[in-house]
């Protein structure tokens, strides 16, 4: 999961190549890698890739602060992901 998400963010949103390879703990919002629009693009990607729905109340900075926090958020949704796959 970390590899998929890190890969997507690195390819789509990292403009400054000095930040590559991207660490899973790099602050994405504070560093400006994710802005309000790229966050929405990422949400659409996560919904499609992992078969979840990211509710309005989940779009909180703490869920998207780093690759690790995105993965933690997704892992908490694992039952939903399994249902979508099953």
């Amino acid at each position: 999961m970390e590899t998929v998400i890190n890969g997507y963010i690195s390819q789509e949103f990292v403009r400054d190549t000095a930040l590559l390879p991207l660490a899973d703990e790099t602050p994405l919002l504070e560093s400006g890698i994710l802005d309000s629009l790229s966050l929405l693009q990422l949400v659409v990607f996560l919904e499609e890739k992992f078969g979840i729905t990211v509710g309005d109340t989940d779009l909180l900075p703490q869920n998207f602060e780093t690759v690790n926090s995105i993965c933690a958020y997704l892992r908490a949704r694992e039952p939903e992901m399994q249902n979508a796959q099953g």
């Binding site: 309000s36 966050l39 929405l40 309005d56 109340t57 989940d58 779009l59 909180l60 900075p61 703490q62």
Partner: peptide, 13 residues
């Protein structure tokens, strides 16, 4: 309304 930092989520919604 909502937690600190929820402004973007509220506005977007």
């Amino acid at each position: 309304l909502g937690p600190e930092g929820a402004g973007m989520a509220i506005f977007n919604s």
